[in-house]
Amino acid sequence: MPSTAPPEASTGPWDVHRLPRADGKTFLVTGGNAGIGYFVAEQLAGTGATVVLGSRDAGRADAAVASIRSRVPDARVRHIRLDLADLSSLEASADSLRLERLDAVVHNAGVKYDQPTRRETGDGHEAMFGINHLGHFALTHWLAPLLAAAPEGRVVTTGSFAATSERLDLDDLESTRDYRPDRTYGRSKLAQMLFGFELDRRLRAAGSRVRSVVTHPGGALDSLTPSRPPIHVRGTGERLRGLPAGVLVQGKDAAAWTAVRAVLDPAITGGQLWTPRLFGLRGTPRRQPVRGPLADTEAAARLWSASRDLTGVEPESGLG
């Protein structure tokens, strides 16, 4: 089971502005061309590691790479094409990494639709569940040999605060009967987080060195996020309007801190949950107990079986 030890147990001081070096390591960040994923990639690039951005849009990925290189001297950063909505393409994406080992993958990419019309991927899956959960579930399978080849490979799954108030409907995982955009999004992120915990249980049972860690970024607003032209440009008016919200939430640069720590901190072990310190919404990373729907091992096991049937792959295969 995921650990329920008190927050911060067995961890030392951590400075989000003075990250440890990671020279020689390679990290993949899905959705690393924009939003929180961009800042995860930028911060990891500052450690000396090689950072690979997974993105559907080559133009946006090129712009993100250029932005990181303009801010991080000698950054080792590149991108690959990654479309989580197309399950049949993920094996080729993993092959395109051209690596002998992968030290960590950050499952960050995600979509949230507000329109009342239910969307589907080209594979016929509800889009938020298909991209946020099933795509990362299948990608983990294809990355398994590379992660297992690393001394201590890590799978870092980025959930959401929205997941903590939801429960899965295991008889309607793809919201065919009950599609409400906010609920469907929250459930897709809950599925991701349950996957991360279930993956760790299976890795431990197999005696694998790979660790699976779950995080969520808290609340993040563009108006509190520093400019990174052309990725994100924040005007003075937008910045001033966002200041009151800074009491409760934060910018996307700070929202990246939990995933970055989950990748780099040697004291972090599998099955842990890391969130922002203040009410789970803002602040430096803090370990939290795994409770409520996140601790439902039966639901996680049933979700795993359903996801395997829907994707045709088994993520822990090759991670032993």
Rank of each mutant, 00 (worst) to 15 (best):
E198I: 09
E198N: 06
E198H: 08
L199R: 05
D200T: 04
D200L: 11
R201H: 13
R204N: 13
R204W: 08
R209H: 14
V210R: 08
T215H: 08
T215F: 11
H216F: 11
G218I: 00
G219M: 14
G219R: 12
D222K: 15
D222N: 15
D222M: 13
S223T: 15
S223M: 14
T225F: 10
P229M: 13
P230N: 01
P230L: 06
I231C: 12
V233D: 08
V233R: 12
R234T: 14
R234F: 11
G235H: 12
T236H: 03
G237V: 15
R241E: 02
G242T: 10
G242D: 05
L243W: 11
P244H: 03
P244Q: 04
P244C: 11
L248T: 05
G251M: 04
K252P: 03
D253A: 15
A254Y: 06
A255M: 05
A255T: 06
A256E: 12
T258I: 03
V260E: 11
A262L: 00
A262M: 12
A262Y: 08
V263D: 12
L264S: 01
L264F: 13
L264H: 02
L264D: 05
P266F: 12
P266G: 02
P266A: 05
A267V: 02
I268Q: 14
T269E: 15
G270K: 06
G270Y: 02
G270H: 00
Q272T: 04
Q272D: 09
Q272L: 03
L273M: 07
L273T: 04
R277Y: 09
L278S: 05
L278R: 07
G280V: 14
G280R: 14
L281C: 01
L281S: 07
T284Q: 09
T284F: 08
R286Y: 04
R286F: 11
R287L: 05
P289V: 15
G292R: 08
G292N: 09
L294C: 04
L294W: 15
A295R: 14
D296Y: 07
D296Q: 01
E298H: 04
E298F: 00
A299Y: 11
A301K: 03
A301E: 13
R302D: 12
R302E: 11
L303P: 06
L303F: 03
S305M: 13
S305F: 07
A306N: 00
A306F: 01
S307D: 07
S307H: 02
R308I: 10
R308V: 02
T311F: 10
G312M: 14
E314M: 07
E314A: 06
E314S: 09
E316F: 13
S317M: 09
S317A: 15
